[in-house]
């Protein structure tokens, strides 16, 4: 009550919380609970990937060689850069620098769009090479049935990841809009912080998808 900055932010304090600090802690914990369910969601797919890789090792090796190593590597770097700009946006709003926050959020969106464009080019390449699972799937090497299974997991895992990137673009855009409308300050910025957590989670998933899909088996080329 005596804290003046707290008094300024009181209109953002929901009535069921004692103070801003408690509200912030609860908001962050709620986001983490959600992210853990997301980790479980992707965890199931990682589990399927590992189990099938163990069972059909040769087919997995064959499939890995048809990944675009360079697009995968560049996209990894793009997402790490977007994570940096996202965390800098959170830092800027913690310091009450709204203008800088908006700039950092906008740069994050640009990186995310760059990721999606590269991913789209990669999908297009696979489509033209008849590597998309289904009736048009064609693979000349050994064990095409299980190579197709590799591609099923590749498209499902990267597809769900790409969906999360799209949702992330929506969230960050919303934060940019709200920030421009003056919704956030050094005292109240839980939505930006939680959007940051979501965005870093998307990066975290890709950090594991990258070695599993693009790196393992890459050295067998040539």
């Amino acid at each position: 009550m005596s804290d003046s900055s707290e008094a300024l932010a009181t209109h953002e304090l929901r009535h069921h919380f004692e103070n801003m600090e408690q509200q912030r802690g609860a908001s962050s914990m709620g986001m983490w609970v959600f992210l853990i369910t997301e980790i479980m969601f992707f965890g199931g797919m990682f589990m399927a990937y590992l189990a099938y890789r163990y069972e059909y090792f040769l087919a997995w090796q064959e499939g890995s060689q048809h990944m675009n190593f360079w697009i995968g590597t560049v996209n990894t770097a793009v997402l790490i850069c977007s994570s940096l700009t996202m965390v800098l946006a959170v830092l800027a709003i913690q310091q009450g620098r709204r203008r800088l926050t908006s700039i950092m959020l906008a740069v994050t969106i640009c990186f995310a769009i760059a990721f999606m464009v590269l991913k789209g080019m990669e999908y297009h390449e696979h489509w033209l090479a008849h590597e998309f699972p289904g009736p048009a799937f064609h693979f000349a090497g050994i064990d095409p049935r299980h190579v197709e299974m590799f591609f099923v997991l590749y498209f499902v895992m990267t597809g769900f990841h790409a969906l999360h990137v799209l949702i992330g673009i929506g969230l960050v855009s919303t934060m940019l809009y709200m920030n421009e409308r003056g919704h956030f300050s050094a005292d109240y910025h839980n939505p930006i912080e939680n959007t940051g957590l979501y965005w870093h989670f998307v990066d975290l998933i890709w950090i594991y998808l990258y070695p599993l899909l693009y790196l393992i088996g890459h050295h067998h080329v040539g």
Binding site: F69, T73, T76, A77, I80, Y210, P211, Y214, L215, I216, H218, H219
Partner: peptide
């Protein structure tokens, strides 16, 4: 990232 990409060769 650069290290893990290089090590894949």
């Amino acid at each position: 990232t650069a290290a893990t990409a290089a090590l894949s060769y």
